[in-house]
Design a protein around this nucleic acid. Sequence first.
DNA 1: TTTAGGG
DNA 2: CCCTAAA
Length: 705
Amino acid sequence: MGSKSSNHLIYPCLLTTQVRRTWSATSSTVAENCDDGLHALLNSQLSSITNFQFRNFSKVCPSVLQKQISSAQKNDVTGLVEFYLVSINPMRFQLHIMHLQWRQMKPKLRKLVRVDGAGRLVPATQDEIMVVEDFLEDDKCEPKHVPDTRHTSESVKTEGYLLERNPFQVPEGKLESENPEVGAEKSNVLVDPVPDLGKIEAPEKVAVHGLAPCSEVSNIDLSVRTEVGSNPQDAPKEDAPSTSAASSSLKPDFSKLEGKICLDNLTVKELQETFKAAFGRETSVKDKQWLKRRITMGLTNSCDFSCTTFIIRDNVVVRKGEEQICHRVKSRISADSEDGVANPDSGGSLGDHDNRINDDADFSGADVSSSAFESCKVTKDLYTEQRTAKRARKPTKRYIEELSEIESRESSEKLSSPDKTSRYRFACPETLKRPTKNVRLNARPLVTRQDSLGGSGVQIPFVSRIRRSRPRENFMPLLKLQPCGMDMSTRQVSSAFAVSGRQEDDKRNNDLINTSSSPGWTQQPLIAACEEDKHDSGMKIAELENDIELNDCSEDNSDDNVVTVPTQKGGMRRKHHRPWTINEVVKLVEGVARYGAGRWSEIKRLAFASCPYRTSVDLKDKWRNLLKASFVQLPAEKGILNSRKQASVPIPAPILSRVRELADMQGQIQPILSTGKSSGYSSSGRSVHEASSRSPESRPSCEIN
DNA sequence: TTTAGGG
DNA sequence: CCCTAAA
C-alpha cells in the first residue's frame, strides 16, 4: 500500500441517461427531473452522500465535488448527476442510496467506472469490477449496525489499495492531494475554495451539543446516530492511521469551539440573523429547530453557501477564517445527523419524519433511510420555507412552475382534509415526491395520483425538458482519458495491421458518420473526438493492452434511443437500433482477438463495460455480421469504397481484414459465405469451443499484422 | 445465465 | 435487432 491513493475508488456509475431512465422507472417522482427539480433532489442527496463520503474518506475527491458543484450552480444538471453518481461508492453506506436504482438495472446497463485523481471516469477493470460487484450484490444490508460504519471505512481503504495498482494513468498533481497520508492537511487546501465542502470533508469532532436530545431520538436519525454513537471509540482507530486529523473521533471538544457560532445557543432572532447571513434572505420562521436544521442542512448542501463566508460545522457556524481552527478540533462531522436529531419539541417536522419513516419502512437500510430522510427533511423544509420566506436562489422558470403546481395541489388537499395532522403527514411525502424529486422509489399510490393530477401525466412534459442534446458536454472533459473514440481506434487498428491505414478512410468514415442521418448520439462525440484527434495526431498508439478497457464508447448515451415499435402480431416491441461505430467494432474485434469468439460475455464485460447498450448477444450478432462482411469484401479486395452503399457506417477494410483473419484463426470460416470453398471446418457446428479454448494470448500476429 | 442460431 | 432453444 505504498502509494495508496485513496482516491482510486470504484464507483458504480450510471450514465446520465440511464440514470434518468432508471429513476423515472423506479421513482416517477424523480423521474421527470426538470433541471431545477433534479437539482434540488441531488442537492439534498448530496448532503448525505457528501457527508458519508467525506466522513469516510475525507480525502476523496473534493476536487471532483467542487467541480461538479460548480457545474451544478450553472444549472448543469448533467454534471450534477454525474457527480452524484461518481460520488457514490460501492460501500454499503453510499450504496444504499443508489441501491435500488442499481439493483433494478439490468446488469448490462450497469457501468462501473473509477474516478481517478482528476475526477475523470475511467472504466473499471475486471478486477475492480469484481471487487465492487461483491458489494453491489450484497444487498442484504441490514439497517443499523455499528460495525458497518467501520466496515465501510475499511472497505474503502481496501479498495483504495486495491485500485492503486491500477495501470491507469493518474494525474500527478491531483492525486497527491487525495493521498490519505496527507489527507488532513491537503483537505484543508482543497477545502478553501469551497468552505462548506471542506467542512464536511474533514470529519472532525462531533459537537454533541447539550441540546441534542439523543436519547429519544426518532428512528430517523437512528441510523446515523447509531453510526456516530457507536463509532466513538473504535472507529477512529480504523481510519485514524492515515487520516489522523481527518479521522473521526467522537470526542466532543467544545473547548475549541470559541469564535464560532453555536447554533444551539442562539436565540431565534439570532438564528434568523444567521440564516439571513448565510442565505442572504430573511426568514420568518421561528422554530429554532427548523432554523438550525435549515442552516446546517441547507448550508451543507447549498451551493449558495459556497459563496458565503460561513462554514457550518456541527451545528456551528464559523467564518471561513476560523475554519482552520475548527479543523484542528477533532470532531466528527455530523451536522446533519445532529440536526437530524430533531428535538422532540420540534413539532411538525419531526412528526413528519416519523411518519415518513414508517412509510418508507421498506427501505432496506437504516443508512438509506437516514440519508433519504435527511433529504426529505431538507426538501420538506425547503418547501415549507418557500411558503414562509422568499427564495434566495433565483428560481428558475421550471421551479416556479412546479412550485405553483405544488401549492395549488396542496391547497386542494387542505380543503379535502381538514385534519391538519393527517394532511401534514400526507403532504410530506407528497411534497417530497414531486416537487423536489424525492428519492424514494416506492410510492406507487402517490405516483399514480400524481399522474392523475397532472392529467396527461406529468412525467412526459418534464422529461421533454431534459436537456438531451449536450448532456456530455460537461462530462467529456472528465473522460479525457479516452483519447478519441473511433478515430483513434481506427488508427490503432490500421497501424496494428499495417494495412493501408490511410487517413482517408478515417476521414471518410467520419464524414459518413457525421452526415449520416442517424440520431445524434454518436455524432457529437465522434465529431468532437475527431477534432481533437486532429489536434494531437501524435496519439499514443500504445496501450493496446488497456485500451479495450479504456476505450469508452465515445458515443454518448445521452439518449435512450428506445423506440417502441408496434408490431402487428407481437404487440409493442422495442427497437433499439443503435448503429455500431467504428470504435465499437474495433473494440469488438479486439475483444474477439483477445478472448476468443464466442466469449461474448467476457468481451462484453471487459471491453464493452462502457457500452451498456451492447449486450453480449449484440456483440455476437455484430461479429456475425462482420464475419459475413469480411468474407464478402475481402476476396474482391474492394476497399470501403463501395461500402458506401451501406447505409450504416462502413467498416474500414483493415478491420474487416482482421476480422477475417481472426475468423480464420479461430476456425470460424463461414462455410456458406466462403463461396462454397467451405473448408472442412466444422462448418456451422461452432468450433468455437476450440476457438475459445484458445487462450487470449494465442493471437500471434494479430497486432503485428 | 450464456451461447448459438434462426428470423 | 429480437426471440428461442439448448447447455
